[in-house]
Design a protein around this nucleic acid. Structure first.
Ligand code: FES
Ligand code: FES
Lengths: 142, 142
DNA sequence: AATTTCTGATACTAATTTAGTATCAGTTAA
DNA sequence: TTAACTGATACTAAATTAGTATCAGAAATT
């Protein structure tokens, strides 16, 4: 049971990398090389991040992308939602014969509670936090 | 982002149905009809549940399956693990260039915390609990 | 004994999703 | 005017998930 798919994974990595460079525009090519993410795949991911306002871009030579917000304001939960949608169970587990009615189903509520917890946790993990943690680890390593 | 796949979903439904019948053996055919789960698919799922000791079976005419444990002792977490494996992120998010070393990575720990939380929650939801909730809802409906 | 109703084991196909590729048009800087 | 870039979008390949099929053997029924 994999929580993050490749798009989310690559997106987070790209965002971290961008967050660590405060200077100017970074081309998709450069990012792709640095993070060893397939170029065309990364392009599509970046375009999606741009559409969702996490990243901004500049066209033409010397152009590229950069974060559109402070790293501390970009939550991993947002990224997950962009590429994988909201967390949900499969279909209603007790449809047909067993399931009474969705609206006031106790089970469903219980499970949505878990969903909320997970989302809340992932909302607290921001790109900024990840960068800080990363730097801390690197410092420790010497 | 779907949490449960069809196997887990069907498995849980089958377990609930079995848990609600305390009498004798239920054939895969009967279960399949009752829950509208594709017969062959359900067979495979039941076999897996049997291998994992959640269900026991009796061969031959008049045979079938039944729960091997009290419904209250079967956690949804177990079922998830059987059919979808342990909850995990994709690969290490910061391998190669960014990731220093897995062993003492702060981020990884944080994320494993979430994983544990989810598992813990799903461990508390047992088939027995689901049956109780279901019955409560049905009673309310009148 | 023969037949029917069941599970055990396992191989297979189809559908869907995820991952990755390719292409062309347009923009900016040099 | 050319090279280095993004925007948009269509496409293919690989992997996973969902579902099907088959055959052997066990117990109850006749
Ligand atoms: S599972 Fe369907 S409403 Fe509860
Ligand atoms: S993400 Fe790789 S060890 Fe932290």
């Amino acid at each position: 049971m994999k929580v993050l798919n490749k798009e989310t994974d690559y997106a987070v990595r790209a965002l971290i990398s961008l967050g660590m460079k405060s200077d100017g525009w970074v081309s998709a090519k450069a990012l792709s090389d640095e993070q060893t993410i397939p170029y065309q795949f990364l392009r599509r991911i970046l375009q999606e991040l741009i559409r969702n306002g996490l990243v901004e871009s500049k066209e033409g030579a010397g152009g590229g992308v950069r974060l559109a917000k402070e790293p501390g304001l970009i939550a991993v939960a947002e990224v997950i939602e962009i590429f994988q949608g909201k967390v949900q169970l499969s279909e209603c587990m007790f449809r047909k014969q067993l399931c009474s009615n969705r609206a006031n189903c106790v089970l469903r509520h219980e499970i949505m509670r878990i969903e909320k917890m997970v989302n809340q946790e992932f909302s607290q993990i921001t790109i900024g936090k990840l960068i800080d943690d990363l730097k801390a680890v690197e410092a420790m390593k010497g």
